[in-house]
Amino acid sequence: MGTKLNKGDTSNGVSVLSIVGMGGMGKTTLAQLVYNDATINQSFDLKAWVCVSDNFDAIAITKAILQSITSESCDYSNLDLLQVKLKEKLSGKRFLLVLDDIWNENYNDWTILRSPFGAGTAIIVTTRLQIVSSIVDPLKAFHLDKLSDDDCLSIFTQHALKAINFDGHPHFKEIGEKIIRRCNGLPLAAKAIGSLLRTVKYHREWERIYESEI
Rank of each mutant, 00 (worst) to 15 (best):
A122K: 00
Q67N: 13
N78D: 15
D75Q: 14
T127Y: 01
D80S: 15
D100M: 00
S133D: 05
L97V: 04
K89P: 06
I65C: 05
W110A: 01
I102W: 02
T127E: 02
S53H: 10
L79F: 09
V52S: 00
I102P: 00
G120L: 00
S91D: 11
L96N: 05
L90N: 09
W103L: 09
F56G: 03
C74I: 07
I69R: 01
S77Q: 13
A122S: 13
D57Y: 12
D75M: 14
R94Q: 13
L82F: 06
K85D: 13
Q42L: 14
I123E: 01
W49C: 12
T29M: 03
G26W: 07
S53M: 06
A122V: 02
N78K: 10
W103H: 12
L30W: 09
I123M: 05
W103F: 10
K140F: 12
Q32A: 05
T62S: 12
G92K: 13
A58H: 06
D45W: 05
D45K: 12
L96D: 04
A64N: 15
D101P: 09
V125H: 02
L113S: 08
V98W: 00
S133L: 00
D137L: 00
T70E: 10
V132G: 03
N108G: 07
I69M: 02
F44D: 01
I65K: 04
Q67F: 07
F95I: 04
I40E: 02
T39N: 11
W110F: 03
C74N: 13
F56E: 01
V52A: 03
K87L: 06
N106G: 06
G26A: 08
C74Q: 14
G120T: 01
Q130W: 06
F142S: 08
L82Y: 02
P116R: 00
T126F: 02
L96T: 06
S115Q: 05
Q83N: 10
T111C: 08
F56T: 10
V84T: 05
L66P: 04
K93Q: 11
E72G: 09
S77Y: 14
S77K: 15
C74G: 09
K93A: 12
S71V: 13
Q32D: 12
D100G: 04
D80Y: 14
A141F: 00
V136M: 03
C74L: 11
V125Q: 02
P138G: 08
E105Q: 14
F95A: 05
K87R: 15
L82H: 03
L81V: 13
L79P: 09
R128A: 03
Y35I: 08
G120D: 00
K87V: 04
I69L: 06
T29V: 07
I102F: 01
N41I: 12
F56S: 07
D100L: 01
S53Q: 09
K63N: 06
Q83F: 08
Y76K: 14
A119Q: 14
A60H: 10
I65W: 01
L30M: 09
A141G: 05
V84Q: 11
I131G: 05
D57W: 08
S77R: 15
L139P: 03
S73P: 15
V50H: 03
N36K: 14
N104L: 01
L30G: 09
S53P: 07
A60W: 04
G92T: 11
Y76G: 12
I59D: 02
W103C: 11
Y35K: 07
W110K: 07
I40W: 03
I112N: 10
A64M: 14
